[in-house]
Design a protein around this nucleic acid. Sequence first.
DNA 1: GTTTAATCTGGCATAAATTGGCATAGGATG
DNA 2: CATCCTATGCCAATTTATGCCAGATTAAAC
Lengths: 148, 148
Amino acid sequence: MFRGRYEHTVTDTGRVSVPAKFREVCKDKYGDETFVVTNFDRCLIAYPLKEWNRIENKVAELPQFRKDVISFLRYLMGGAVDCPIDNQGRILIPQTLRKHAKINKELVMIGMLTRIEIWSKEIWYEEESKMAYEEFKKSSEILANQGL
Amino acid sequence: MFRGRYEHTVTDTGRVSVPAKFREVCKDKYGDETFVVTNFDRCLIAYPLKEWNRIENKVAELPQFRKDVISFLRYLMGGAVDCPIDNQGRILIPQTLRKHAKINKELVMIGMLTRIEIWSKEIWYEEESKMAYEEFKKSSEILANQGL
DNA sequence: GTTTAATCTGGCATAAATTGGCATAGGATG
DNA sequence: CATCCTATGCCAATTTATGCCAGATTAAAC
């Protein structure tokens, strides 16, 4: 499972190293070296290809002209791009996605078990400071209610 | 399946490159290089020919006497035009369709699994910004309901 | 503490994709 | 039939993606 937070740099062509730990998980657990990256709220999320296909297949079964399904497709599927890992362990994040998440030079990758969140470093620190004690208390309660 | 969002430019004669990824899917999955493009709401949609035929067949089985069905179909079927991909990987979007979607110079193509949406860039960004938190939450619920 | 290995980053060279332009072909219109 | 408009094919310039090499940095091993 993906865990931990890493800060990396993006080249001006949009390439970033995927943290070695994440690559390892991707290969060992999913037998593959491709991520699918899409936009999500104020950041990007990356799924291992296999995990993504699972989602796609489920969504493909929904009625394709239902309003909520359309907006879902437009937003999440519309953003999704496969990003294979190259020989140096990097992926290329396309311009449209970089623009969406306001990623410029430095970013933060956060392991979230089955997926990875990718934030612009600036925005991440902003978000982190907002997500202060109150938020934390709330989340802790949820955890507690789950018996943890 | 089609996924990802691409911004492209239209020549003054109405030709646009189909993103390489989409061409690839079209050829590999449908063994064909022709799209059927039609009007839809505030944008256009493009289906690979085979997929379009599947829809046509389905439609043929629908109850013909229902007024709303008929007018929706008139709308959808009426606008449909075959757009073969040329040697440079481009299609020609006819004037009537361009006008319908207010496509001028720049457009956005959005992969939606079995079909592609084509938006005027301006209108797309309008739409995207409108699709704010509420919409997004709704989509996320779909995700949640799919166990994701 | 030094050596070794692995990871991350920047740069360059090549390949592929995208776009603009021009010339010709084909139809429609008067 | 001449003229106009649009469609189509093709070339060339530009931009973007990809592969690979090498230095810099970090972590691991001895």
